[in-house]
Every structure is written in structure tokens, then in C-alpha cells.
Design a protein around this nucleic acid. Structure first.
Lengths: 260, 260
DNA sequence: AGCTGTGAAAGAATTCACAGCC
DNA sequence: GGCTGTGAATTCTTTCACAGCT
């Protein structure tokens, strides 16, 4: 349990037996991670829960409680060591694993994701871009050729792909998901506005962009109705942090045949 | 309170005094809405909480409780009238308002959003595409010309834009947000991986795509650690529905100068 | 003096379970 | 018999407030 500060060096043993981290906390850890990443670039070596809370848009008690689940590595009177915190969080989120990710469906959204630099910076390596449109196969997106969906099995096996980002149109999403599962994928980030049915051992997380707009619309309407009272409703400034149940998804013009 | 079924006709009065809808419920209403929209296309006229729960990936008690906040419009022994429910929800979410939306930052993600048909289907009208890169101005995306960010004030005024979708790179996001606020925008859907600071009356909702992957990674790792016990962790099949605190954002290659 | 870590209190969300209506 | 609506019980999350270390 030493590992003071400095490099993100090896952890000591006895870490597997950590308490269960609440879901709400899990959802915030990536935000802290992002903020800490920015701080470390400004050569900040130490940060207080107050400051971190401000940057992340939450309150300080929450930050302390959240971080305490990682094991209470702060120093009273001082704060947290930024690098060590980063290490702790990346460890907890499994970002040290270098997950291979396949993006399936290279329409506008798929391209946007392929070009998004943030993934690699945060422990995810894009290992394949797949589409079922022959006209797209071979084209380069983010310096990588699009491959045909039929190659899925081989690619998953050879490149040890663990996570698939599903960015195909809604009507194709279930059948493509079925193929992903058969190929051995166990985690899917689903951007299609559908509820996928998959075996229990497969994790699915939904992101639906239209739903986000609808939620925004709800709170806007409520504000207007209530005569724009400032101290009301949810999420103001930054830390909106509204609980977002099942999220939505974008279908976007991607061509993936309704495979079977 | 008549308004039986059939057209989404006029509501009766006395609706402003409805109880406060919990945040968690607000986040799920759009999911129900999406599912109901699909059901109505299959000519389903009536739906039970059980069935709706299954389609939405949640449990039935939750569905009933959620819908009860809209006012208890189900029929015991029968279920809910699909069209009427759709009307109720769209009313509640303010989808009957036809909000004008501006997409700011027309990189890959901005384009993906512009081409996403789901918005208009759900009460949002894309009223402008803005970018600060002169090379992009005038180009057509989804049959609409990109306009220069400098036109913002005029466009917001003339087209009554209420909501902005911010899809610019992270470093530009705060300054662009400042401009949006000055132009009179009061709701922002932020895709940049930053915590924006805005006046209290402005609503911000964050979506960070990398964070979604990180959350997925956490649960995957935990499963593996625990020896893949099936009955554990969060979110299995469909209704992942993990609470998603402050979400993340994608920066994507969009060119918007750091205005200011 | 400053800031973490955490029990205990308060508040929200979920789930149970069943009375009540069709 | 089937299904809604909802209090009550339970579980999860947030917030408070302060003891305890540096």
C-alpha cells in the first residue's frame, strides 16, 4: 500500500477485496478521471476534494465519498495526489487493460467515433472498423481501412476484440448484435435506438442521442412553466448529472444489411 | 379529462398542477415513448405494463409507477391506450413544442447529428448548422447549408432557436458556449468532454461518449474478476439503465476557432 | 489550520404486494 | 382473471457534520 506518488507503478497486493463500488460512483469516476487528466497537464500534483468537485461539477462531500471507495488514499490537510488518483481510477475502470474495440457501422456516427482521439487516450484501442456495405469496404477512415462485417469472427479472434460499438441503423441493430454475440463479443455500446436482447453474460450500454434532447426539453419546459424560477428543477450549470436511465441512440445513415 | 383515444386532440384544463415527476422517471419517459412509437406502427392500440416493461427493458412495477406520475390513465384489466399514452408523454416532455435546434460544430459528429432522422420525428427541428471554418460555410449537409458562427445572433433571433447542440472540440467548447449564451440560447446539449460554466438559468446536459465506454469497461472487468457470475453487477441484457451521472462528450475533428 | 474519511441522517428511487376496478 | 394504482418496505444515493490526521 505504499506506492507513494510518482509513476503509475505497480500496485501492492490485497486489492481484489475492495468493497463494491456503487453504480452512481462508477458513473462519476470517468468524470474525475477526465478532470484529473487535464490537471496533470497543468502540472498540478495535488488536488483537494473541493477543487476536484468544482472542476467536475459536483459537491465536495460526494467526491470524498466516491474516492473513499477506492481506498482512502488522500492526505488530510493536503488533498489527493493527482497522479496516484489517476492510477487508482484507471485501475478501477479497467483502463490499464488496453481494450480492443471494434466500431460496427461506419456511417457518420461511426466515422465520428473512429476519429475521436479521446478513446485511445483513455485506454481503448480501435482495432477494427466494420461495415457491410461493399462500397465502403477498403476505404480509409482515420487511417484505417474499413473491413467487411463478414470478417467479424476472424477479426474478433485474431485481434482479441472485447468491446463493440454498435453504430448501425435501428432496423439492423438486433441482427448485427446477434452476430457480435456469436463472434464472442461480451460488451456492446449500443447507439441504435433499440433495446437489444442478448444473453445474460453480455453487457449492453445504450446511448440514445435523441433521448438526451428530450430530457433537456422536459426541464426547459418545466422552467418556462414555473416562471423561470432559478432555484428549481434539475441540473443547472455544469453538474447536470441527472440520472440517465436507459439512454437513447442514434441510427444515422449507415448501410449494414439486415444480416441474419 | 375525456380525450379518450383517437387523435392526439386537445387536452382538458387542470393539467398544470401535476405532481413533480422524479428525475429517474423523466429519463425513462423517452424510452417508453420510443417503444410506444414502434408499437403504434404495428397497429397495437393497447399495451400492458408488463409488455411495455419488456420492450423497454425495465420492470413492470417501475413502468406503472412512472406512468402514474402522468396521471393514471390506464384501464384495469386492460392496459394503457397506446396513442393516448404517446400523447401524454409527448405533452410532458414538451415534444409538442416543435423546438428549433441549432447544431454548432459540423465535424463528423455534427454531421452525424444533422443526418439523424430521429430528431424531427420526436419534436425537434434542425434550424441551423453552424461552424466557424470558412471552408465549410456554404457546404450542404443534410440538404442544408452550413452557416458561419458569426451569424449566430441573427439566426437565433430570426428562427427562435431554443436549443443548441454543441459538437465542437473540447478546447473551443467554453468560448462557443459563452457565445451561445450571449445569443440567448437557454439549453445546451454538450458533446464536448468539458464541464461548461454558464449562468444558472441555462440548462446544460452532457454526453460524453468515452465515458460510456469507460463505464462499460468497469462492469466488464468486474465480471471477469468475479469469475463471470451471471447474477451480479449492473445491467445485463437490455435495460442496462445504469444511472449515468454527468455524462461525457466527444470532441471530434470540427473546426471552430476559439472565438471569444 | 486545513482537509480527508466516514458514521449517521435525510432524501430518492425501486420494489413489493395487494386492494380495487374492469 | 387480468391488470392498474399506490401505500409501505426496502435499497440506494446524497448530504451533513465532525472526529482525526498532517
Amino acid at each position: 500500500m505504499t506506492v507513494g506518488r510518482g509513476g503509475l507503478a505497480g500496485r501492492v497486493s490485497g486489492e481484489r477485496t475492495r468493497r463494491k463500488i456503487p453504480e452512481a460512483t462508477v458513473a462519476r469516476l470517468p468524470v474525475y478521471f477526465r478532470v484529473l487528466l487535464a490537471s496533470v497537464e497543468h502540472n498540478t500534483t495535488t488536488i483537494s476534494s473541493d477543487r476536484l468537485a468544482e472542476l467536475a461539477g459536483v459537491n465536495a462531500a460526494k467526491v470524498r465519498k466516491d474516492l473513499s471507495y477506492l481506498g482512502s488514499y488522500g492526505t488530510r490537510g493536503v488533498g489527493y495526489d493527482v497522479e496516484f488518483l489517476l492510477y487508482q481510477i484507471s485501475q478501477e475502470l479497467g483502463l490499464t487493460n488496453d481494450w480492443a474495440v471494434a466500431i460496427v457501422g461506419i456511417g457518420n456516427l461511426g466515422q465520428a467515433l473512429a476519429n475521436y482521439g479521446g478513446f485511445s487516450a483513455r485506454g481503448f484501442r480501435i482495432a477494427a472498423l466494420l461495415d457491410s456495405d461493399p462500397a465502403k469496404v477498403g476505404k480509409l477512415v482515420a487511417d484505417r481501412p474499413i473491413e467487411h462485417l463478414d470478417e467479424l469472427d476472424r477479426i474478433v479472434r485474431e485481434r482479441a476484440v472485447a468491446i463493440a460499438v454498435l453504430a448501425v441503423p435501428a432496423p439492423a441493430s438486433q441482427s448485427v448484435a446477434d452476430r457480435l454475440v456469436r463472434a464472442g463479443i461480451t460488451s456492446i455500446l449500443n447507439f441504435a435506438p433499440t433495446v437489444l436482447s442478448v444473453p445474460a453474460e453480455v453487457l449492453v450500454r445504450d446511448v440514445d442521442l435523441a433521448i438526451e434532447l428530450q430530457i433537456l426539453s422536459f426541464y426547459r419546459r418545466r422552467r418556462l412553466d414555473n416562471g423561470a424560477s432559478t432555484t428549481n428543477g434539475a441540473s443547472t450549470t455544469n453538474g447536470a448529472s441527472t440520472t440517465n436511465g436507459a439512454a437513447t441512440s442514434v441510427s444515422v445513415s449507415v448501410s449494414v444489411e439486415a444480416a441474419g
